[in-house]
Each structure stands twice: as C-alpha cells, then as structure tokens.
Simulated assay, not measured.
Amino acid sequence: MSTESVIAVHRAVTVPLDPDRAFELFTARMSAYWPREHSIGTAPLDQVVVEPRAGGRWYERGTDGGECDWGRVAVWEPPGRVVLLWQIGADWRFDPGLETEVHVSFTEEEPGRTRVDIEHRHLERYGEQAAAMQGLFESPGAWTDTLTRFARLAE
C-alpha cells in the first residue's frame, strides 16, 4: 500500500461547444492553441500531435520536420475524456522513465456549452523538484494560458 501523496494542478474553462467538438478541438487541433514557446524540440514548434488512440504518441514536430516525444495517450474515450502521460522532466527533456498524468474531461453544462477540466496529476514523481514543478504548472503562463488560448479558439 502506497503512502505517496498525490500532487496535482487543476484548471478549468467553459467553451461554447458541445463535448464532441470540444474534445476534437482539444486533441486534433492542439497546434492551433498550444503556446509556441512551450516547445522542447531543437527547431521552432510547427505541430503538436496527439495520436487518436490509447497507446498513441503525444509529440511535437519542429519546422525542420524533426519530432520530439512529450508522452503517450493513456486513455482515449471521446467525447468524455482523454488522459495524456506527460513524460517531460524538470530539465525540459523527454524522460521515458517519468510519467505524470494530464487528465482532461469534457462535461456538457448545457446544450452547446462544455466544461473542460485539466488535472495534471502525480507531480510528486518529480521528486526533489516536485514543489518547483507544481509552482510552474500553477503559474499564469502554464495550464491557465493554454486553456485560455483553447477557449479563444473555441469561440
């Protein structure tokens, strides 16, 4: 039995889309809202790709065509939720031995309006850097900014 304390960051936004469209926008068009400066590749960010299936890759493609893994798709349940495994270390490099979880749920609040919740879980897996990474992910320029950009695109 684990006594590990789960550290998570939660953000939410409501968009004027039904859950199907919100899910599709979030997963298939991530390049359209993902902050360009949030890249770990060697070339400028061109595309963010989420392969639409459990076990699929989550990665960026640079303007030079090179690819850089970010993680994997753990759960693919359109239009209700997707869970992405974030495998980027505190040094901002892909780390296949690290798995934090980005849980994204899509809940219809009323016809044509969907609440999108992101919970980035298991930040304790960063070890000694857990508090610093939590602070970073809670900062205005992290998940808050990403969801704000997503909501603008949904309008």
Rank of each mutant, 00 (worst) to 15 (best):
S2Q: 04
E4S: 12
E4R: 13
S5G: 11
H10C: 11
H10P: 09
A12H: 15
P16L: 03
P16M: 07
P16Y: 13
L17Y: 01
F26W: 11
T27S: 14
A28V: 07
A28P: 05
R36G: 08
R36T: 08
E37K: 12
E37N: 14
L45N: 12
L45R: 12
D46P: 05
Q47E: 15
V49Q: 09
V49L: 07
V50K: 03
V50F: 15
E51P: 02
R53N: 06
A54S: 13
G55R: 10
G56D: 02
R57T: 04
R57E: 14
R61S: 01
G62A: 14
G65R: 08
G65V: 02
G66S: 15
C68E: 14
W70D: 03
R72A: 04
R72K: 14
V73F: 10
P78D: 04
P79S: 11
G80L: 10
R81E: 13
L84H: 05
W86K: 07
Q87K: 01
Q87V: 00
G89Q: 01
G89H: 07
D91H: 12
W92S: 14
W92V: 09
W92M: 06
W92R: 11
R93T: 14
D95C: 03
G97M: 10
L98I: 02
T100M: 02
E101R: 10
H103C: 04
S105W: 05
F106W: 04
F106R: 04
V116Q: 04
V116I: 03
I118A: 02
H122I: 02
L123R: 01
E124A: 13
R125A: 06
A131C: 03
A132L: 10
A132Y: 13
M133H: 10
Q134P: 00
E138P: 00
P140D: 10
G141A: 15
L147D: 03
L147K: 00
R149F: 07
R149G: 10
F150V: 03
R152P: 08
R152Q: 14
R152F: 11
A154R: 02
E155F: 09
E155A: 12
